[in-house]
Design a protein around this nucleic acid. Structure first.
Lengths: 142, 142
DNA sequence: GTTTTTGCAAACCATTTGCAGGGTC
DNA sequence: GACCCTGCAAATGGTTTGCAAAAAC
């Protein structure tokens, strides 16, 4: 339900060429309701007769993740999924009902990182993912 | 460097039978320095001539993760790994140098979860992983 | 003795790669 | 026109599964 433009813009700015397959995939990704998997996107592309090969799908997702327009997450069941996002540092809340993802800020994380560094580790990177049900799914009982 | 007993105890308590392959794998896991992968464990098992099949290794890891004695983590490079841990709720700091993992408490998370719930989501689960270098690896330059 | 577990080998499935042709800048 | 990108098909590699024999309770 987002817009495809930011995805293409991010690729363009990073020096990637704006090809037909990439445009088509950006549209497809923009139309995803919540998180999506590479395999699922490949399925959609096939049923939409985009004529885009599996390899291109994986390569495009990789490029988009590389420029920060997509984030790869691991769902509670171990599956991999991607969510479209702003290319800034942040974290997500993911709905286990419909897959909708929202960004949240990490204000409170600073103190956790500081606490962790008291163990002697120097923290370079952190990953936080919250899972739950969005307001709609709580009502609808999906 | 940990002890194999807690792993076996956890399986026993959950009603799993204590078989020879499971004892052998518990020892092997207990001897792992930091995090380890299923594939790596399979390699170790083969070189140690344990006579344990790949399938059994995956099944045993799955069982241990199921009872909370192992936690599956995703490293920054996308690889999967496991770390032995107490079966209570907690989070890890993982050294990107040697793989050593330590548990940290999640005191500060409470406020983040609360903030996230103000978006309308009801949070059921969260996952936090910190990556950095442990004291030894900062000195040694691994 | 009944039920779970194992090992093997084959099956699976997501992801990657090599390469020749085609599209983009 | 040079270089990037694509599609295809084949390779890869981790993980799962079916099944008969073996072990645990």
């Amino acid at each position: 339900m987002t817009d495809a433009a930011p995805l293409l813009l991010a690729l363009d700015r990073a020096g990637y060429r704006l090809t037909e397959p990439r445009r088509a995939l950006a549209m497809l990704i923009a139309g995803q309701a919540g998180h999506f998997s590479a395999a699922g996107l490949a399925r959609d592309a096939r049923s939409a007769r985009l004529g885009v090969g599996r390899a291109t799908i994986f390569r495009t997702i990789e490029a988009l993740a590389g420029v920060g327009a997509l984030e790869r997450i691991e769902l509670p069941d171990g599956e991999h999924a991607y969510v479209a996002c702003e290319p800034a540092h942040h974290h997500h809340v993911v709905c286990t009902g419909c897959g909708a993802a929202r960004e949240i800020d990490d204000a409170g994380l600073r103190s956790i990182v500081r606490a962790a560094e008291r163990t002697g580790y120097r923290i370079d990177e952190h990953r936080l993912q919250l899972f739950g049900r969005c307001a709609a799914c709580q009502l609808g009982g999906h």
